[in-house]
Computed example of a mutant assay.
Amino acid sequence: MLYGIIAATTALLLSAVLTALLRAAALRLGIADRRRQRTLPLFGGVAVALTSCLVATVGDRTGFAPLGAGVGELLVAGAAVAALGLFADVRRVKPRVLVAGTAVAAACVVPYEETGVPGGLLAVGWIVFVALGLRALDHADGLAGTVGVVTAFGAGACAAVEVMDGLAVLLSVLAAALTGFLMHNWPPARVGLGACGSLFTGFLLASAAVVTRAGYGLGSTAAVFGALTVVIGADVLLVVVSRRLSGRSGPDHLAHRLRRLGLTPQGAAVLLGAAAFSGVLVAVLVHLGWVGPTGALWVAGGALIVVLGLLRIKPSSTPRPVSPQVRGQLRVRNG
């Protein structure tokens, strides 16, 4: 318990410092993205991944917080996914490459002895969905990091209930690292999470949930998973339906629609963070057995109502112009 507190504190401070240092490196290298006509240097996700891996590895090697069977492999697979995301931040990578790479990593961490092969394949698909869904959620300042912190605490609570202390410590370290990153990412953000950090975070969260729920029934597990990642699922659903109806891509994510309702960037991040907390709370209660799996249906129903309501808010159809200054600062990373 004491080491968990020390590890989380160390991760928070180290992540905050590394994020600032790597932000400067990203600016020098020109590795940035455009968000509302401003350059947003990346590499914040690199700080999150490095901090999480370093602190967790030190705890395991020193014996203060052994990761336990399978958790070390999960962390290695997460690091591989982070490396793939970093490559995507620097160079153009087709979506199917990210899907395939994340799927291979997921296939290496699923406990097939407890899930069975069919259940294991479903788990692989869900891990890929969450990892790429969290990457898509990184469309607004502070959003992916906030949802990641809340979800990490929920997944960590479930792991603690199962007496998976090493996994619980890893998730608390991840939450702390994301919090340190949020010091620089809260609107208006000075650095972005990027594919490196979002894929790493989503992969660890989903894989940890799979390991924690291995051996439970499919129905209750689906309920826990759905409630745990309700904001990610709602964002994906909104984007898919919106683009199918309009026949084009555009700024049609959750935060985009909320901004058109008049919310500030901070307000959108807080509101969606609160929604994530509600889903996580239900997921933990279902895992504990204090609420039946049908409790997750209320979460799903609420998310569906929100998505249907936001679909009535027309997304912006006019692309934002890119200023010459921004165009000059953005690095052409597409080769």
Rank of each mutant, 00 (worst) to 15 (best):
G125Y: 11
T318E: 06
G45D: 02
A269Q: 11
L311C: 12
A79T: 15
A255M: 07
L98M: 14
I313A: 10
R35W: 11
L254Y: 06
V211G: 03
G262Q: 15
E162W: 11
G45A: 09
F129H: 13
V284C: 08
V90N: 02
R312C: 07
L12S: 07
T62W: 08
G202W: 02
L14P: 06
L84M: 12
G219Q: 13
V306I: 11
L182S: 05
G148C: 03
A157Y: 06
V191K: 05
G262C: 08
A274Y: 01
A276T: 14
L205I: 04
A209N: 02
G192W: 02
G309S: 06
G120Q: 10
E114F: 12
L121A: 09
Q325W: 15
V147G: 03
F203E: 00
G292P: 12
V161A: 12
G85Q: 03
E162F: 09
H256A: 07
H253D: 14
L308K: 12
A105N: 01
L261M: 13
G142M: 10
G309A: 09
S220A: 15
V110C: 05
D165E: 05
V109I: 03
S52R: 01
D165C: 00
P251R: 14
V240A: 10
S198C: 03
V169W: 05
A189N: 13
A77E: 00
A131S: 03
R248T: 14
A296K: 09
T39E: 02
L74T: 03
R91I: 01
G202Q: 01
P324S: 08
R96A: 02
L134W: 01
A100K: 15
G133W: 03
L167C: 04
A123W: 10
P293Y: 14
V93Q: 05
L271M: 06
R38N: 01
G44V: 03
Q329H: 10
A234R: 02
G133D: 04
P293G: 11
A176I: 09
A20M: 13
L308W: 12
G267S: 01
G215M: 04
V224F: 12
V169A: 07
A152H: 01
V17C: 08
T229K: 08
V46Q: 04
G180P: 14
R190N: 07
V97G: 04
L98A: 06
R190P: 08
T151N: 02
G119M: 10
G197C: 11
A206L: 12
G197M: 09
G194F: 02
T10H: 00
